[in-house]
Simulated assay, not measured.
Amino acid sequence: MQTHIIIPARYGSSRLPGKPLLELGGRPVIAHVIEKAKAHFSHVYVATDDHRIFECAESCGVKAVMTSEHHASGTDRLAEVAVKLELPDEDIVLNLQGDEPLMPPALLKQLEALLIAKPDSQMATLMHEIHEVEELLNPNVVKVAVGENKRALYFSRAPIPYPRDEFSNDKSVMPSGNYYRHIGLYGYRVGALKAISALEESPLEVLEKLEQLRPLANGIEILIDVSEVMPPHGVDTIEDLDALRKHFI
C-alpha cells in the first residue's frame, strides 16, 4: 500500500482566475504547494485542466495529468487521475488543494495515519474547534456534527448541532458545548474514490454545495479527527494572495 498526493489545480476560478500560476515570493502559487508535498511524500501528482498549469507542474519535477474541464467536484477530478494512473484500490490518495501553499505537512500525515490505523475505512478528513459565535453562524464556514468512533454525521453551512435553548435567548454569545469547522483536506482509499465519483450528485450535496455529502448520503462513512494545528487560509481572493505575500518576502 502506498500513499499518493494529488493536487487538483483549475485555471478557471470564478473569484481569482489563474490563481495556481499567480506570483507568490517570485514563484507560482502551485510551485510552493508542490515543493511542500514533495518534501514529505514520494508520490505527488498535479491534476489540471489547463496546459499552462500542466507545464508548470512538470517543471517542478512532478507528473501532471490533464483532466476534464467538466468535473462537478475535486473528488471527481482525483478519481479520473487515479484511473489514468491505474492506482491500486487499496492505496491511499490525499487531496491537497493547489491554492494551499501554507498547508502544514503534519495535517497530511495525520490524515494518512487515520486511514492506516483503520484498514477498513474508506475516507477521512479533519476538523478544528470553533470558539467564536461569528464563525459558527458564518455560512462560508462549513460545520460538522460528529458521532462516536470519529465518524462524521453531517456537514452543513448552518450551525450544527443547533443549540436550540441557548440560541432562542441570544445568538450573540458562543453557546456551550463543542462545535467544529471542517478543514477541506480529504483522504481516500482509491477504490472508494472511484466508487464515490461514479455516484450521482446527491440532493444534499447540490443544496449545500458540499461534495462530502455525496458519500455520506450513500452510506459511506467518513473518519474525522481534530486537526493537530489550525491550517492558515488558502488563496481564494486577491486579498488572500496579498496577505500571503507577506510570508514570502
Rank of each mutant, 00 (worst) to 15 (best):
124 A>T: 00
41 F>C: 09
197 S>F: 02
236 D>V: 15
210 L>Y: 05
64 A>Y: 02
139 P>E: 13
65 V>M: 08
177 G>T: 04
61 G>P: 03
104 P>W: 00
116 I>A: 13
202 S>P: 10
135 E>S: 15
149 N>K: 14
88 P>Q: 02
64 A>V: 03
185 L>P: 08
232 P>M: 09
107 L>R: 01
43 H>W: 11
100 E>F: 09
53 I>G: 00
95 N>V: 06
246 K>H: 05
223 L>N: 11
169 N>E: 15
42 S>C: 09
233 H>R: 13
176 S>E: 10
27 R>Y: 04
30 I>C: 05
195 A>K: 11
131 H>S: 14
26 G>I: 03
181 R>E: 15
47 A>G: 10
33 V>R: 01
12 G>Y: 12
89 D>H: 06
183 I>K: 03
129 E>T: 10
43 H>A: 12
106 A>V: 13
184 G>T: 14
21 L>G: 07
180 Y>E: 09
208 E>K: 10
130 I>W: 04
142 V>Q: 05
180 Y>S: 12
223 L>D: 15
63 K>H: 02
132 E>F: 14
102 L>G: 04
235 V>F: 02
196 I>E: 02
95 N>C: 14
185 L>G: 00
40 H>E: 11
81 V>A: 09
153 L>A: 08
167 F>V: 08
142 V>H: 09
44 V>D: 07
190 V>A: 04
59 S>F: 05
73 S>F: 06
210 L>C: 06
75 T>L: 04
20 P>H: 01
171 K>H: 11
71 H>Q: 00
146 V>A: 07
210 L>S: 01
90 E>C: 12
14 S>P: 14
47 A>C: 06
110 Q>G: 02
17 P>K: 10
198 A>L: 07
79 A>V: 08
142 V>L: 14
58 E>L: 01
37 A>Y: 03
56 C>G: 07
203 P>Y: 08
64 A>M: 01
112 E>Q: 12
35 E>R: 10
167 F>G: 04
118 K>C: 13
244 L>V: 02
151 R>E: 10
207 L>N: 14
115 L>F: 08
116 I>Y: 15
202 S>M: 06
49 D>Y: 00
129 E>M: 12
126 L>K: 00
32 H>D: 08
125 T>Y: 02
187 G>L: 11
26 G>V: 05
180 Y>Q: 14
122 Q>D: 13
81 V>G: 00
92 I>V: 11
137 L>D: 10
105 P>W: 09
94 L>N: 05
218 N>Y: 14
238 I>A: 15
206 V>I: 15
109 K>W: 09
61 G>R: 07
171 K>Y: 11
54 F>S: 03
127 M>H: 10
195 A>D: 07
122 Q>V: 12
94 L>S: 03
53 I>E: 00
138 N>L: 12
95 N>L: 15
147 G>A: 02
184 G>E: 13
82 A>D: 01
216 L>Y: 06
14 S>D: 12
150 K>I: 06
96 L>S: 04
110 Q>F: 03
4 H>R: 04
133 V>W: 05
221 E>G: 13
103 M>G: 05
38 K>R: 15
6 I>Q: 08
